[in-house]
Design a protein around this nucleic acid. Sequence first.
DNA 1: TCTTACATTTAGAATAATTCTTGATTTAGA
DNA 2: TCTAAATCAAGAATTATTCTAAATGTAAGA
Lengths: 145, 145
Amino acid sequence: MKPVAQENPGYAETISHNGHRLTPQRREVYEVLLAQRDHPTATEVFLRTKQRMPSISLATIYNCLETLVECGLVKQVNVERDATRYCPNLTEHGHFMCERCGKIYDVPLLASKRVGRTWDLPVGFTVVHNDIMLRGACADCNKGT
Amino acid sequence: MKPVAQENPGYAETISHNGHRLTPQRREVYEVLLAQRDHPTATEVFLRTKQRMPSISLATIYNCLETLVECGLVKQVNVERDATRYCPNLTEHGHFMCERCGKIYDVPLLASKRVGRTWDLPVGFTVVHNDIMLRGACADCNKGT
DNA sequence: TCTTACATTTAGAATAATTCTTGATTTAGA
DNA sequence: TCTAAATCAAGAATTATTCTAAATGTAAGA
C-alpha cells in the first residue's frame, strides 16, 4: 500500500488543525480509503482495515470516518437509503452509479460550469454543499446488452 | 382539500395501467401529498392521513407510497440518511434544503441545461435518473443573519 | 518523572426507519 | 354468488448507525 503521505502530504496537519489526533486507527482507515477508490461502506472499510489491524472495532471505524469527514479529508456518498459510502476524492465532483453492476464512479464537473448556473435557484439562496447522484448504465454494462 | 382529479386527471389510469387498484387508502395518501407540498416523511404522511382515515396503519402508508412511487406518480427525496421524503412534483427538478430552517424547495433545471452538458460523463454511460440535492441557506434565513 | 485532564478506542446496548411475515379483508371477474 | 388474487394491518424483524460506559492512551504541566 502506498504511504498516505505520498497521496496527501499535509493530511496529518489537517487532522491536528481540526483539534484531533492522528491515531494509528485513523491513519489505517484513511489508507484503506486511498488504496481502493471504490466508495466502500463503513462495513467494507471495517473488513479491509481489520486485515492490517485485527483488533479494530466497527465502532472505531465509524468514529474514524466521522472524524475524517469532519476534517474534510473524506466525503460521504449516499445512494437512496443504502449504507453511506466514503470517498477521499476532494475535487468538485458528483457520482454516477451503474444500476446493473452497482459500481460507483466519480463524475467531474465540466470546466466552465457552476452549480448556480445550472439550477434555477431563487434569489437570495446560497449553496454550501451539493450532492449530485446520477444513475443509469455504465459503458461496460451497456456494451453487454 | 382539492379533489385529486383536479390536480392530476388520469392518475387513476396510471395506477391501473401498472396493474394496481385505486384503493381508498392510496387515494387518501396521494391527496395528502398533493394538498401540502412540503416533502413530508412517511410518518408525517401517516399523521396527516390518519386525520381523514383514522384506521389506517403506518405499514399501509409505506405500502401506498411504494405503489405510488412504482407507478411514477410520486418521487422519493433523500437527504443524507434522514427519513425518505415524498414529492408529487413530476417535472424535472432537483431539491434545495435549507440547513437552518430545514425546509426543502423544488429547484427546476434551467432550460438549455442538460445533465450531459454539466457533468463530464465517460463515453458510453447513459443516465436514467438523477438525484440533485443542494444544501445551504434559503432567502428568508439569509435575511435574518 | 509523575500526575492530571482529556481524547480515543472498544464492546455492546439502544435507536429508528424500513421491510417482512402472517392472517384478515376486500375486490374483480367468472 | 363464489373464488382467486390483491391489499391491508399489526407487530416482529432487520439493519445501519449512534450512544453509553469503561478501559486505554497521550500530551502537557508540576
